[in-house]
């Protein structure tokens, strides 16, 4: 082959097409049964998670008495469910499959630790990613945007069990606040972030250990689940969302700080 580049492209193309053919051909044989929804709702394990019916005590959640906030009107039967989160995705992430989330938090922890370990060891100051001074608007607006980002981030973490969102989304929003601060040339204490990260990790373990000690299983819910739809409900989901929000915010923040050093 005179041109290794072209032969490489052809080889890759053939390989990809073969793989794609295998995937599509195999999926085609299965017809439409990959579908969820009306086809096979109850046959999946998520069916019981949606109905909050794993323990077998099916709650009665008919909408009758208007007892809660405006968008929530459940009968008293929605009190003390096996899992009190209105957002079913949150209930899976932070309760039914919380051990996955535990692993996920560790993955992020390992990635951030590794990122810090691998970056060249220079004593650069956290003084903005660009060499230019920040312009007037950015410099003045940054503290205000930072405050709003923090509030929004905490709000998203706090409401993760009621509305779309949760700890990871909230933490990411908190980290954008830190990014704006770094972009505008402000300093941020990276030691504080490392400490927050570690303490949030220990808190996660503490919540899990509480379940282990009190109920006998790691990460089992020990907090009352409350009434569906209220802010202080859903027990472990709320607690874990807050902790994850703190931890992810601190971790992404220290990623930004480490990456934003001038002399990388």
């Amino acid at each position: 082959m005179s041109n290794p580049r072209i032969s490489r492209y052809i080889f890759s193309l053939i390989l990809t097409v073969l793989l794609g053919y295998a995937v599509f051909a195999a999926l085609g044989t299965q017809g439409g049964t990959l579908r969820f929804g009306p086809h096979s709702p109850a046959s999946r394990i998520s069916g019981a998670m949606i109905e909050k019916n794993i323990e077998g005590a099916r709650p009665n959640l008919t909408a009758k008495n208007h007892t809660g906030p405006s968008n929530v009107n459940f009968a008293p039967g929605s009190k003390g469910l096996e899992n009190g989160a209105a957002n079913i995705v949150s209930s899976i992430v932070a309760d039914y499959r919380s051990f996955d989330t535990f692993g996920e938090v560790l993955v992020l922890f390992a990635a951030v630790t590794g990122f810090m370990l691998l970056l060249p060891d220079k004593k650069g100051k956290n003084k903005g990613v660009t060499s230019e001074a920040p312009n007037f608007v950015l410099a003045k607006a940054a503290p205000i945007v930072f405050a709003f980002a923090m509030i929004t981030g905490v709000y998203i973490s706090f409401n993760g069990h009621l509305t779309p969102g949760g700890g990871f989304a909230g933490g990411a929003v908190i980290a954008t606040g830190i990014l704006i601060l770094v972009l505008s040339g402000n300093e941020f204490n990276s030691q504080l972030l490392s400490l927050t990260e570690t303490i949030a990790g220990l808190l996660f373990l503490a919540v899990g250990a509480a379940g282990l000690v009190l109920k006998g299983n790691f990460l089992q819910n020990v907090i009352p689940t409350g009434v569906l739809g209220y802010i202080f409900s859903s027990g472990i989901v709320l607690a874990l969302n807050l902790i994850i929000g703190l931890k992810v915010g601190a971790e992404l923040g220290s990623l930004i700080l480490a990456g934003g050093k001038k002399e990388i």
């Binding site: 999946r44 949606i50 959640l61 209105a86 996955d100 993955v107 739809g229």
Partner: peptide, 30 residues
């Protein structure tokens, strides 16, 4: 997949499968 008062009784038929969404959340972070 969010339970609100208007939907009433949560039944699996009514909702998109939430489990893959939770898995994807994990895989995005990874």
């Amino acid at each position: 997949p969010i339970i609100t008062g208007k939907l009433g009784l949560p039944a699996a038929v009514n909702f998109v499968d939430p489990l893959p969404q939770a898995l994807v959340l994990t895989s995005i972070v990874i």
